[in-house]
């Protein structure tokens, strides 16, 4: 298996606390990889190392390496702004800007210097189509994003992330604040996106991991316990601690 993201012997410390321990993991391209595990197991932390959002937390240190397409993303040849353009992120709470739907999607392209109105129009439409939101909002792009429902807002955030043409999309419990119908829509959306993007998602919901992902990684206390094809991990885990977790004996 050729991995797009290669995490090698990664340790992460918040001050004295060691949040990740010797994590080594490969994430294949154009598929969905799910991170599962109980709260505080380090799965969100690991996700945030992939676009270096952890850099902003004072006192964070890492050792080990993360390579994306062969490039070490923590080397000083990589600008963090460029990295984040290539590695998009969707957060737990829908967090649109207090702007219009159009301006939300155009925010990223504008950051990176696209001013041309026609080009922006095209990007906004394409991104909203990719996020399966276009049909619902095409006639009121000028309206505030805050008028959308929670599920629509989250799809808008996905469209906003897609608008800067990333290769990788990180989803940090992106459905945990949504109702079941909205959750289902986002899950269906990920199935359409996985042929074009490499998706890494953190989820508290094991059924969700089983439904949507091709590979699943199970974390416990900052360690990667097991990573395997999703079907195999859920049907026939090789580590007894994985089995305890997925069968609901803890967590």
């Amino acid at each position: 298996m050729e991995a797009l993201i290669e995490i090698n012997e990664l340790n992460l410390y918040y001050g004295e606390v060691r949040a990740l321990r010797n994590v080594t993991l490969g994430i294949p391209e154009r598929s969905i990889t799910a991170f599962i595990g109980p709260s505080g197991c380090g799965k969100s932390t690991l996700l945030r190392t992939l676009n270096r959002m952890n850099d902003m937390i004072p006192g964070t240190r890492i050792d080990g390496s993360i390579k994306i397409a062969g490039t070490d993303i923590y080397s000083n040849q990589v600008d963090v702004e460029t990295l984040r353009k290539r590695v998009g992120m969707v957060f737990q709470q829908p967090n649109p800007f207090p702007k219009s739907i159009y301006d939300n999607v155009a925010y990223g392209p504008r950051l990176h210097g696209i001013r041309d109105r026609k080009k922006l129009d095209e990007i906004v439409e394409a991104s909203l189509r990719s996020a399966v939101l276009w049909n619902e909002v095409q006639h009121h792009l000028k309206r505030s994003a805050f008028g959308l429902s929670g599920g629509q807002q989250q799809r808008l955030c996905i469209a906003r992330a897609l608008a800067v043409e990333p290769d990788i999309l990180l989803m940090d419990e992106a459905t945990s604040a949504l109702d079941p119908i909205s959750t289902l829509k986002i899950e269906e959306l990920t199935q359409e996106l996985k042929d074009r993007y490499t998706i890494v998602m953190v989820t508290h919901n094991m059924q969700q991991a089983a439904r949507v992902s091709q590979r699943t990684a199970f974390f416990l206390n900052g360690e990667l316990i097991e990573c395997a094809e999703t079907q195999k991990l859920f049907a026939n885990p090789s580590n007894p601690r994985t089995e305890d977790y997925i069968s609901g004996r803890f967590g």
């Binding site: 990295l83 984040r84 992120m89 957060f91």
Partner: peptide, 12 residues
């Protein structure tokens, strides 16, 4: 989270 949204899109 609004700042995070901006940073995550590659804003400085």
């Amino acid at each position: 989270i609004r700042r995070d949204a901006s940073f995550a899109l590659g804003a400085d």
